[in-house]
Design a binder for these strands. Structure first.
Lengths: 187, 187
DNA sequence: GTTCGCATGTAAAGAGTTACATGATTGT
DNA sequence: ACAATCATGTAACTCTTTACATGCGAAC
């Protein structure tokens, strides 16, 4: 059996919610999955082409008034089945993420403490902004579409982002304090 | 000026702590950076070659008794300077990480709730194991090398891992509860 | 006429993993 | 002989982003 990457399954997943064109898929991702999954056109169009070749989707040309034609993709039953199988597979392993700030902090041991603190403070500010972004989206969803059962799943993913970001912010604060303390001890 | 990726800077950083061979660099990473930065030989050797070409490092052949020769890399002042500049640069932006579990949960709306709960439970178990791994490493460092000032920086990076993992575990628990509640409501 | 939004695509470059190839030396 | 550890390296493949190319139709 052929193998597909998660990006392909993300597209398949979007198509389970309705037929769409490549352009619309991009819009859907930017609006709904953006905080945990991004895809560029450079992936979308070649992937769609492959979906059709492998008979996971079919194409229909849709004419529109006042706009260029679109190629709409429809999942086949084969496509739906494949997606379902993927959806039932648990994670193989928690992915190892690279972390530039940790890398710099680690080597910061051989540099000035002031720089480590500066890096952490900057990181904390960026995390705070990210947190506020999550909060903003959350409010829009809560007020706007609370009746839809989609909304609950949206909010779960945002909650994840908020919790993890908050934990990282607290780590920044504690670590900066600790660095200040070390500064006092030695030197 | 030439551009280098973070992997190159990670290697440069390791070389600031002493001259090493490609093989030793790999060992160092596996032992010290493994929880937030991994590198394969497929990156190390080509990168080292480039470091030498760009005069950021020099090579010395080291003969050893009972072992094959090693090529030891020494940072040049140019290499040290470049590393220092990188170390002082704050993050451009918080990297967008992909999250397979969130992706599946998001589309789980159109599938059974039981499957979503299964995925979350499995994820939680994996996170717990990861948390225990962090704790294990932490104990080894705390007892083993508490006198070294390196240890403090080690512990900072582990603390980050623990906090973020713990937040994710709590999210799993809350979300599963919420899903159970929804199950009761409808159907 | 030019700019904007809609719409589809490709090419090139960069980053990373995996598998493979080679070979020395030591111990069994 | 052989396996294990030390040691260096490359080739193929996958994944992803970025930049580019093209073109329709509407509004200004």
């Amino acid at each position: 059996m052929k193998k597909y990457n998660d990006t392909t399954y993300a597209i398949l997943g979007i198509l389970t919610t309705g037929h769409r064109s490549g352009y619309e898929i991009k819009q859907f991702i930017d609006q709904s999955l953006n905080h945990f999954w991004k895809i560029s056109y450079g992936q979308i169009y070649p992937t769609l082409k492959r979906l059709e070749q492998d008979e996971l989707a079919t194409i229909q040309i849709a004419s529109q008034e006042g706009k260029p034609n679109r190629k709409e993709y429809f999942l086949t039953s084969k496509g739906k089945e494949l997606f379902k199988v993927w959806l039932e597979q648990p994670l193989k392993q928690v992915p190892a993420e690279r972390h530039e700030v940790l890398l710099k902090l680690f080597f910061g041991r051989h540099q000035t403490r002031a720089n480590s603190i500066f890096l952490l403070e900057d990181y904390k500010q960026k995390l705070k902004k990210q947190y506020e972004t999550y909060q903003g989206i959350e409010q829009v969803i809560s007020s706007h579409a609370s009746k839809q059962s989609d909304a609950a799943y949206w909010l779960f993913t945002l909650d994840y982002g908020k919790r993890v970001t908050q934990a990282a912010i607290e780590w920044c604060e504690t670590t900066m304090q600790e660095l200040e303390r070390l500064k006092g001890d030695e030197q």
